[in-house]
Design a binder for these strands. Structure first.
Length: 108
DNA sequence: AACCTGACTTCGG
DNA sequence: TCCGAAGCCAGGT
């Protein structure tokens, strides 16, 4: 299948543990930089079906996105379990934990 | 088939 | 720098 959804799912599954990707990042990899909203819908829709690391997907501000505090808490817990460190403002340092497609190990 | 909704992003004031 | 409004893509009703 060559749908945005499939590519998005593939991109999400490509995110390594210990790293986080933004919705825009995934959307971009999926072929539609403006489909960030769709990503959130996808995670909600197929996270369990495709065993997606939904917790590694955050917004561009480096913060968690879910409206539900419960979801928020679980996401944070999973990220911390993978080594992600949250700031005092509950934000993640994308410069450190942000995933770089194609340059996973090639930091500065 | 048409309209509405959504775990977002980005531009403008 | 912070707050508000518009834009986008795909699925659901």
């Amino acid at each position: 299948m060559t749908t945005f959804s499939e590519r998005a799912i593939k991109a999400i599954k490509s995110v390594p543990a210990g790293k986080v990707a933004t919705y825009g990042q995934i959307a971009l990899l999926a072929g539609s930089p403006r489909a960030a909203r769709q990503i959130g819908w996808l995670l909600n829709s197929s996270s369990e079906k495709h065993s997606l690391p939904w917790h590694r997907i955050i917004n561009s501000k480096g913060q968690l996105s879910s409206n539900d505090p419960e979801f928020h808490f679980e996401q944070r817990s999973r990220l911390e379990a993978e080594g992600i460190v949250f700031s005092l403002n509950n934000t993640i340092d994308l410069k450190v934990f942000g995933w770089r497609p194609g340059n996973l190990e090639l930091e500065d």
